[in-house]
Amino acid sequence: MAVDAGALEAGSPLRRARLHVSGFLWRRRWVKALALLMPPLAVFLIVYIGALAALVVSAFWTANSFTATIEHTWTLANYRLIFSTSQPYLHIAAVTLGIAAAVTLTDAVLAFPLAFFMARLAGPRTRVALFVMVLLPLWASYLVRVYAWQTMLAHDGSINWWLNKLGLPDQGLLYTNWAVWIVLSYVWLPFMVLPVYAALERIPDSYLEASADLGARGFKTLRSVILPLALPGLVAGSIFTFALTLGDYITPLLVGGTDSQFIGNVVYDFVGQADIPFAAAFATIPMLVMGVYLLIARRLGAFEAL
């Protein structure tokens, strides 16, 4: 400490240099701002946008069928293959989008009452307990949770055991699209609960009182006051659940059946086959879908709820 204090004494060269620099930065504010923003901006531009640009560009190239060398000639061949009705890719994209939509809807229906209870009805202790319960699964690896579902959904698993106890017949749930839907709905549920909770918590009590004063009953208040105000939260949550499902490929691999190929699985296969251009081309489809989705979400005010 003593050394430090000595170094900073008036007139010492180090102190003069420091004053010089800080004075320069004070006179030219933009230099300061630039220096502060440069590293994250550079990372964003080079790593993030750069990778996306490389992806979009390589989607218009092709890979040599035997040597897998990339041929740098511009062509729409990859897209022609994707949109050809004799190929399975449109069906795979439809399955992926369909399950993403189903997962989003399921999570919205499950999350809304839970978030409502947490935000408006529960006491502080219950609320903390519920928060912990919603967030706790995120502390365990995604893979472990999917494998846990594998054992539950299996033919000799706990779900069939319970069904049999209740006198119901076995269900072959594992290795079907139903399993993919159930597991993904479970895995992404917290990402829906949190934004919906945030939106519901923000509704002032006075609005609900005013609604009651004007003679609206519970259901009318829910429909005309709470739901419209919670909508941005629901849309914000749906961005997560929809995008995460759209990009998933491990869950379909582990619990899916013969018709559970996602866009991500095809992309993974083609990367393995060293056909990067086709993988890139197919990967732009969810990017486009998400782009449109985000535009609609902005219209619905989702970004104010984040």
Binding site: Q150, T151, A154, H155, D156, G157, G172, L174, Y175, L253, L254, G256, G257, T258
Partner: peptide
């Protein structure tokens, strides 16, 4: 044949699990 399949297996332990859990 695909109509008769339960699934395509990807990793060896994965196939073992499918046998073990009765599917």
């Amino acid at each position: 044949q695909k109509a008769n399949l339960k699934r395509f297996w990807n990793y060896a332990p994965d196939e073992e699990a499918s046998f073990k859990n009765g599917d």
